[in-house]
Design a protein around this nucleic acid. Structure first.
Lengths: 195, 195
DNA sequence: GTCTATAGGTTGATAGAC
DNA sequence: GTCTATCAACCTATAGAC
């Protein structure tokens, strides 16, 4: 399963540090999603990359820092959605439009990111607590869509609309549904929930 | 946080083994949900019960057996739903009726069970693989509701209706929503999705 | 049924050579 | 940037006394 890297011949490494970092994140995302954060050791990640644990520590200060980088990437995607919402004129159709826009932007990588977040709730929650920058999931989105004094039931409703994609991903677990199937199912549910 | 158990005075233990077993499951469910399966050691569970690890091994052959017992309990709840579905006359309204029945039966304990399953996907999945008896989640329910040749999109739709409660629980994470709020939100979504 | 003690293994992380 | 070698801390699980 590992993809060993041929040792570099010259003094210059074959790939830049930035590329290696991205590769580490890609492999870690895959393993964390499939085996869970706690079920994946630093050694697992390193071996899948064809390097040793110690080399990994050159690129990241620790295991949690890898998960943190993944969470931050996910946070940036959501922040972009918040910015878009704040630019729109408020109105009753905005919730549906925002949710459908979110779905339309969901590519394979983003779906993998959500699967990761879903499969590793305990770590994500811990990261959000320690590290105040990473606010949990759709908090900011809900904030942007609702007036300040909204009740708990209204908040729940809005949150659930955005959890729809997450629900579709979970529903597809173990089946052979494609990403397109998942997004189509989520879209139907969003439309039904915002009628 | 621990609730130490007073040592029994006579030769007979204060509580039957069955009661102790149930208490272990209750405490383990709580800890597994809050800290995750891997984040909870046998020692954590034992200390919360006021006993030592070794005593726990008298009641359960291992850590995984505890999670397995929790998963089986969850499986029994779903089996009851499957039985009910099979007794009903088939029809287009059956999906909604079954989902609403499932919601109506969801008490606090069941919601805690779902939260556990949700927060520990990797273990649940592993248990379902190794131990063929525990089939994953709503597989049986979907089977009972759909004709054999149903397509993947139709299967997804049915699964998602049942994932609604799960989505509501997730949406309520971190908020101060009550169980009633969660169930109400889930009911609205089920009705919308099955119109 | 519960305890102490410990075996046997894995983990995340560090030091220092190249 | 990558390696070998090593550490302390932690885990599950077992043995055997009471």
């Amino acid at each position: 399963m590992a993809t060993p890297v041929a040792p570099s011949a010259g003094t210059q490494p074959r790939r830049s540090a930035a590329a290696t970092r991205a590769e580490i994140l890609r492999v870690a995302l895959d393993l964390f999603t499939r085996q869970g954060y706690d079920g994946t050791s630093i050694r697992d990640i390193a071996e899948a990359l064809g390097m040793t644990k110690s080399s990994l520590y050159y690129h990241f200060p620790g295991k949690e820092a890898i998960a943190s980088a993944l969470a931050e990437r996910r946070g940036r995607e959501l922040e972009e959605l918040v910015r878009w919402i704040e630019e729109q004129p408020p109105g009753p159709g905005l919730l549906r439009d925002a949710a459908l826009r979110w779905l339309a932007s969901a590519d394979a990588e983003q779906i993998r990111g959500m699967r990761f977040a879903r499969a590793n709730q305990p770590v994500m929650h811990r990261l959000a607590e320690e590290h105040a920058g990473i606010r949990q999931g759709f908090d900011r989105v809900v904030e942007a869509l609702l007036p300040g004094g909204a009740g708990i039931r209204e908040r729940l409703r809005v949150r659930m609309v955005f959890e729809t994609l997450s629900a579709a991903i979970l529903a597809a677990e173990g089946t052979d549904a494609t990403d397109d199937d998942i997004i189509a199912a989520a879209r139907d549910a969003v439309v039904a929930a915002t009628s």
